[in-house]
Design a protein around this nucleic acid. Structure first.
Length: 515
RNA sequence: GGCCCCUUCGUCUAUCGGCUAGGACGCCAGGUUUUCAUCCUGGAAAGAGGGGUUCGAUUCCCCUAGGGGCUGCCA
């Protein structure tokens, strides 16, 4: 087999959708698995849809995801340029070549005339008439007009496009790696525009020319391209490139989590789930990203890899290297996969738990600093040790861990105060505080030993004491071992919080009683 | 509407003619933790329907139904 060269070819019309990220991932994985080359090509042939900043966003997103291309606009290889607008001059000659060989023709119809044709020919049976063998004779093109008229219009500079001439009565077969044999009848195709009036190619023309000259071996792209693939096969054939035509691999779509349909950006915004790798902000739009929602790129990639593919084993956690090893185009599923944010969160939690303390501290630090605290590296890492299995996404870290960094201002469990707090034990609790505060060795083990001993000696129960130490020190009844928490926070701070907490509990109990 | 693609637990999926249909997420119950999370154990939960082919179909074929995609001088 000749060398594997694959490309991810997004269009810079906005932020890179999560489905695009998965397409990039599968291209990347396949290239790495086969020792091939993974290329990024920017498909910016539609100037009307060009969005400022989108290309940069795509590049940055891929970087964050760890899907760095071997060749791209930032890293030119031997097949450049890697931006289609920079390749503009290449396409015209092949479009012209197709006209000369009788496989394409000039068409002068204005957008208004096209609309009119579609409107006039529309019937209940055929609500969307095509520009094809049946209709092209009625339109203004070099097939329906006389040579002289065409020449005259060209001389006058009348705007024209070049359209592919598709003859009816043929079957176009091709093999898809995911779907197997697929075939279309040529009369179902339309005479697709190849070259637009601005001399820019359409996707159909550009992707064939570029894939050919970039020596692309496999086209791995979304299923939405399946219906236009026969047109692409025809283009390879008419250009004389069919013998080196790439293999096709059409990926199943990523669907909405609930009901039906393709996962869209609007939908994601509506239900508050990320649909983009990173935040996107423009004059008109704001979309939240996985990154800003507290996802680790490895977790997101692992999750995405399993949306439409699986290794056939029961292993689910795959790092980059594992994915490359296990990946196989043959094991990609045919049907669309629903996006399940819950599962994505589970993957993220798995990765957080696996992350070493130093890196986790680094990941979590921005959230702590955003709250105005600058803990030492050592301190933050200690907190991470205790908290790492207690949050699914990074953004939840602060809410669950703030008592390590600042005083307790409120208590999240009033019920336990109302039911179990005994003001008559106040004196004993005060003694407990003093006992704890006197400890010379302030380790979790030592605190635990002495607290338990104190409880026994004073004929208290764990239930009367432990929840209140916890609540006073952390403001919540949830969390890691209270003795570990105390040892990290330190004896002075602990004494202060116990004192204040016990006082607060008395007041709260009193006010709850009255209300 | 037409064309193409798809169809196993709620969701992601395993099964390449022998199935007591396996795993994961989520859910429920129990255990560990006198908290929470983690972890462990158990549970409920599926091959759209109808025809074939076959000794035997979730698996192969056909039809129906349902879903999705495409149907632009957008990609």
């Amino acid at each position: 087999m000749s060398k594997v060269r694959v490309r991810f070819a997004p269009s810079p019309t906005g932020p890179l959708h999560i489905g695009g990220v998965r397409t990039a991932l599968y291209n990347y994985l396949f290239a790495r698995k086969t020792g091939g080359t993974y290329i990024l090509r920017i498909e910016d042939t539609d100037r009307t849809r060009y969005v400022e900043g989108a290309e940069k966003y795509i590049l940055e997103s891929l970087k964050w995801c760890g899907l760095n291309p071997d060749e791209s606009v930032e890293k030119e290889g031997d097949y450049g340029p890697y931006r289609q607008s920079d390749r503009k001059g290449m396409y015209v000659q092949y479009a012209e070549q197709l006209v000369e060989s009788g496989h394409a023709y000039y068409a002068f119809d204005t957008p208004e005339e096209l609309d009119k044709m579609r409107e006039d020919l529309k019937t209940p049976e055929d609500p969307s008439p095509k520009y094809n063998y049946a209709t092209r004779g009625k339109m203004k093109n070099s097939l329906s007009l006389s040579k002289e008229t065409v020449q005259k219009m060209m001389n006058e500079g009348v705007a024209y496009v070049i359209r592919l001439l598709v003859e009816p009565g043929q079957e176009i077969h091709f093999n898809d790696i995911v779907r197997g044999a697929v075939s279309f009848k040529s009369e179902e195709l339309d005479d697709k525009v190849l070259l637009k009036t601005d001399k820019m190619p359409t996707y159909h023309m550009a992707n064939i020319v570029d894939d050919h000259f970039m020596e692309i071996s496999h086209v791995i792209r979304g299923e939405e391209w399946l219906p236009s693939t026969p047109t692409h096969v025809l283009l390879y054939r008419f250009l004389g490139w069919e013998d080196t035509m790439p293999a096709f691999c059409h990926l199943p779509l990523i669907l909405k989590p609930d009901g039906k349909g393709k996962l869209s950006k609007r939908y994601g915004a509506k239900v508050g789930i990320p649909v983009f790798p990173m935040n996107w902000e423009s004059d008109t739009d704001f979309f939240i990203g996985f990154k800003e929602q507290g996802f680790l790129p490895e977790a997101m990639i692992n999750f995405l890899a399993f949306l439409g593919w699986n290794p056939g084993t029961e292993q689910e956690i795959f790092n980059n290297e594992d994915l490359i090893q296990a990946f196989d185009l043959e094991r990609i599923n045919k049907s669309g996969a629903r996006f399940d944010i819950q599962k994505a969160r589970w993957f993220n939690q798995q990765y957080i738990m696996q992350t070493n303390d130093a890196r986790l501290a680094e990941l979590v630090r921005p959230y702590v600093e955003a709250e105005g605290h600058k803990p030492s590296e050592e301190y933050l890492q200690k907190v991470c040790v205790l908290m790492k299995e207690r949050f699914e996404v990074l953004t939840e870290f602060w809410g669950n861990s703030k008592y390590f960094f600042e005083d307790v201002s409120e208590y999240d469990n009033q019920k336990v105060i109302r039911k179990k707090w005994k003001p008559e034990n106040r004196e004993k609790m005060h003694d407990l505080k003093s006992t704890v505060n006197r400890l010379r060795i302030f380790t979790a083990e030592n605190i635990e030993e002495h607290v338990k001993k104190f409880i026994e000696e004073n004929e208290l129960s764990f239930g009367e004491v432990l929840p209140f130490i916890r609540l006073a020190v952390s403001g919540t009844t949830k969390g890691p071992s209270i003795f570990e928490i105390m040892s990290i926070i330190g004896e002075d701070e602990v004494a202060k919080r116990l004192e204040k907490g016990f006082e607060d509990f008395d007041k709260i109990k009193e006010s709850l009683k009255n209300s």
